[in-house]
Nucleic acid binder design. Sequence first.
RNA 1: UGGGGCGUGGCCAAGUGGUUAAGGCAUCGGGUUUUGAUCCCGUGAUCCCUGGUUCGAAUCCAGGCGCCCCAGCCA
Length: 555
Amino acid sequence: MPELELPKDDFVRDIIRDDLSKGSHQAVITRFPPEPNGYLHIGHAKSICLNFGVAKEFGGHCHLRFDDTNPAKEEQEFIDSIKEDVSWLGFDWGENLFHASDYFEQLYSWAESLINKGLAYVCDLSAEEMREYRGTLTEPGRDSPYRNRSVEENLSLFREMRAGGFPEGSKTLRAKIDMASGNMNLRDPALYRIKHAAHPRTGSTWKIYPTYDYAHGQSDAIEGITHSLCTLEFADHRPLYDWLIEHLTVPARPRQYEFARLNLTHTVLSKRVLMRLVSEGHVTGWDDPRMPTIRGMRRRGVPPEALKDFIGRLAISKSDSTIEMQMLDHSIREHLNEHAERRMAVLKPLKLTIRNWPKGQTEMLEVPNHPGRPELGTRKIPFSGSLWIEADDFMEDPPRKFFRLGPGREVRLRFAYLVTCEDFIKNETGEVTEIICTYDPATAGGNAPDGRKVKGIIHWVSAVHAIEAEVLLTSQLFKSENPSAGGDPIEDIDANSLEVVKEVKLEPELASALAGYPVQFERLGYFNRDPAQSQLAFIRTIGLRDSWAKTQTKG
RNA sequence: UGGGGCGUGGCCAAGUGGUUAAGGCAUCGGGUUUUGAUCCCGUGAUCCCUGGUUCGAAUCCAGGCGCCCCAGCCA
């Protein structure tokens, strides 16, 4: 069934539609501008989908541009991983791969032009002094004592800065705007700072680097970006963005528009905190399945289509909002329900022996790979008189509403036969170790010829044929909806969010499972072959909805 | 009287003066079902508050209240 995509409509697309109809632009050019100082997470995915999505919808292009203006924090490793993640999401920047560092020379000469116009000056204030001079949110700042240097002096100082004649932090190039502005960004913002660190792309060529504010808008202009979409916290920077575009002889006039960033319950999307989770060892790495990173979700088995579907349901607006994690869960389940093939696996094995099954006999059952999609074919699974069933599917003294096995109760072994529990065996500690049943030979395939009703259906794996693997069961990394509410989110980490289950029993077919193609373990959830382990292992992508668990907790 | 942004059901969110105030997620009922899954039905708001304009306001005006962002030579 082809997925029906509703036309997207939001304030950004309204603006674009309007610009296009007025003829302000021939085509739409957007950009996704990550700083290569970390891995992409689901919040970035929103921006990626917006920028690439909008470009595609209106027949334009989206550039992938690395905002690599701070060599102290950026690494090639991140450049590579970001490209990989964007591609995995299914977006293609084609020829349009850029770096702000490609424009360093041009940006530099524009900076000199600003100096020549008397709109920028070299300032000797230290970082601390600059902060003092900046004033506060409610009090105006004071002019730097270096604010009125001559053009000639500024020029020679700035050239000396470029030549590496000054130590890091000793000087900056600042725009001369308004130290009394209510907008802090206009209080003579720094345009260039001295950094002697090696840049992943330009090496040691440069001793000075442009700030975000100076580089971003100009890079947009150079690339002919028509709509520069960023998050709300940059709205205050827009007057500066516009000021620079106005005072520089740039080739185009890009406009910046801001939308609300994505927030999700039960997780945190701050680069700083994500970094701590990894560096302090609270998770196993950037690809830990509990991480909201693109690689974490990929390893977990979240299909890119599900992620994009989720983001497509989000609105592009300007109001701060926090989306419930269940929304994402829904998109994942919806996609996987349709696409994942079904398999059988037993997580907490309990032996079930069929007393009247012919000794040593194995029957191969042909079963569908998907209940609703016959085109996905069938597979054969072995059935025998000695099975593993889920320990949770048996109760010694079950309540009325428990539809599974209990003394004297009859259930359907999925796709196989109806069995009745005749007896059970306990060990010294009182733990049930084996269930003894008889099967009804007339119920092959699970059909009762007499039409008798069997409410319970349980899954199973033939004991002699089962293969084993390790399974990773994860739950939310954080206990509360808003992990930062109580202060340090690290305090809110759920120590039990990662459970490793060994020697899980699987139907033989699962030996050939491929990472990236999650399957449904019937009645349990969706599982992805763990790409990070060489031996057979699975990660639970997400569980099935479980109304039985709900009625249980309700008592 | 620092600047900027936002306020529609539990969570998102359409709506741009006349609609029974869309839709999705969640919840709770019910039906179907060889996954207690899926699927299918059904279920809730007078729109932050107070005044005003108008025949008529979530939509316009005025005044409040609340929340978020900004004082990096980070982005």
